[in-house]
Amino acid sequence: MPSNVEIKAKISDPTQFAETAAKLSKSEGTIIRQHDTFFNCNQGRLKLRDFMNETGQLIFYERPDTDGPKLSRYSISPTNNPPSLRTVLSEALGVKGEVKKERRLFLIGQTRVHLDTVEGLGHYMELEVVMRPEQTVEEGQQVAEDLMEKLDVSKESLVTGAYMDLILKGIKET
Rank of each mutant, 00 (worst) to 15 (best):
M148T: 02
L127A: 07
S84E: 14
F17E: 02
L158W: 04
L89A: 02
V88I: 15
Q57T: 10
E139H: 11
E145K: 07
G170Y: 06
E62A: 11
T37Y: 04
Q142Y: 04
L71T: 12
F106C: 03
I11R: 08
V88L: 15
S84H: 09
T160E: 14
L168G: 03
V130M: 15
G120D: 06
A144H: 00
A18N: 04
P78Q: 14
R73M: 14
E149A: 13
D146A: 07
I11W: 07
Q43H: 11
L151T: 02
L151Q: 06
R103L: 07
Q110K: 15
A22H: 01
P78S: 15
K10N: 05
E28S: 03
G68T: 04
T136D: 10
I31W: 03
K8C: 11
P82C: 03
T37S: 04
N42A: 12
T117C: 12
P78E: 14
P2N: 10
R112G: 01
E19C: 02
M1P: 12
E28Y: 00
Q110H: 13
M131H: 05
R45F: 08
S84V: 11
T136E: 11
I108L: 05
S157V: 00
M131N: 05
V143Y: 00
E149M: 04
G29A: 04
N4E: 12
S84D: 09
S27E: 08
L158K: 03
N53G: 02
N40Q: 10
D50H: 10
V118F: 10
Y61F: 15
